[in-house]
Computed example of a mutant assay.
Amino acid sequence: MSQVTQSQVTESQDTQFQNSRQIFGTPLPRVLGGVALLACAIVLLCDVTMWFLVKGYNPISQTISELAAGPHHWLQDTGIVVFVIGTFCLAIDLFIRGEKGWKPWLVRIAMVLICVDIAMIALWNEYGDGVPGGLEIHIYLVALLYPLVPIILWFGTSVLPARHGKFSTIAKVTAIAWLALAPIFFILPTRIDGLYERFLGCIMIGAVAIAAWRLIDEPTPNHESEN
């Protein structure tokens, strides 16, 4: 009898979650996932568009930062900021679900930090002190991605809705690979550092896209807990 009662309570909680968090009849997590997935497409589109807008630009030998500091930089900055907004949508979902335990909180904090970090990477030169030779923090912001990305990839597989998904193993392998591959960027010859930087960027974009798809595919919360 107690098991039936608990099942009824759980079902009632699921129903309340869906009914109270909808936008035009669509579950909020699915909307957040859709925004995040769209943001991934936009940041890629903005980058590729810049290859043709900036005369003489070579995406293999020249980095993304060179686009952000050159002509039409607003388009590159816009794409990155949109990607930040999409990533923040995933963080919002984590807060809405309210899952308890240190792992969910670690992922939430890491998600917020990486959003702030990437936004500052895109906007610091434009909204900094504007004085040539002023405070240079770009390299430190980039370095902060080194621990944040694997934290999110590894521990993100322990929280809803990614838990026990078919991509969990891939995410953990990617987290380990990131720790080995990311530092290589700083010792690469300049003739290919643009290509390699985009490879690392695609890892982050791919992770956000997969997480976004999970929200679209499975917007209803699962009450199973893992701490």
Rank of each mutant, 00 (worst) to 15 (best):
M1D: 11
V4W: 06
Q8A: 14
V9Q: 05
V9I: 15
E11S: 08
S12G: 10
S12V: 00
T15A: 12
T15G: 00
T15I: 10
Q16S: 08
F17C: 00
F17A: 06
T26H: 05
L32P: 06
L32F: 13
V35L: 05
V35W: 01
A39D: 02
A41C: 11
A41E: 02
A41D: 00
V43F: 03
L44E: 04
L44W: 12
C46L: 09
C46K: 09
D47R: 06
M50G: 07
F52Y: 14
L53P: 06
K55S: 14
K55M: 08
K55D: 15
G56Y: 02
P59Y: 05
Q62L: 05
T63E: 07
S65T: 09
G70C: 06
Q76A: 14
D77W: 08
D77L: 12
G79V: 13
V81G: 11
V81F: 14
V82H: 08
T87M: 14
C89H: 11
L90H: 05
L90S: 12
L90A: 12
A91L: 13
I92P: 07
L94D: 11
F95Q: 07
F95C: 06
I96K: 10
I96S: 04
E99K: 13
W102H: 10
K103L: 07
P104D: 04
P104Q: 05
W105H: 11
L106G: 07
V107M: 01
M111D: 00
L113C: 04
L113Y: 00
V116R: 03
D117V: 02
D117F: 01
D117I: 01
I118G: 02
I118W: 00
A119R: 09
M120C: 15
I121R: 02
W124G: 03
N125K: 15
V131D: 10
G133D: 12
G133N: 04
E136V: 10
I139V: 11
L141Q: 04
L141R: 01
L145W: 03
Y146E: 11
P150V: 03
I152S: 01
W154D: 02
T157P: 08
V159A: 11
L160S: 14
L160E: 15
P161C: 12
G165S: 15
T169Y: 12
I170H: 09
T174R: 01
L181S: 08
P183N: 01
F186E: 01
P189Q: 06
I192T: 03
I192N: 02
E197C: 06
R198Q: 08
C202T: 10
C202H: 11
M204V: 14
V208F: 01
A209D: 09
W213G: 14
R214A: 09
D217I: 04
D217W: 09
E218D: 08
P219V: 11
P219G: 08
T220N: 06
P221Q: 07
N222G: 05
H223W: 13
S225C: 05
N227G: 04
N227Q: 13
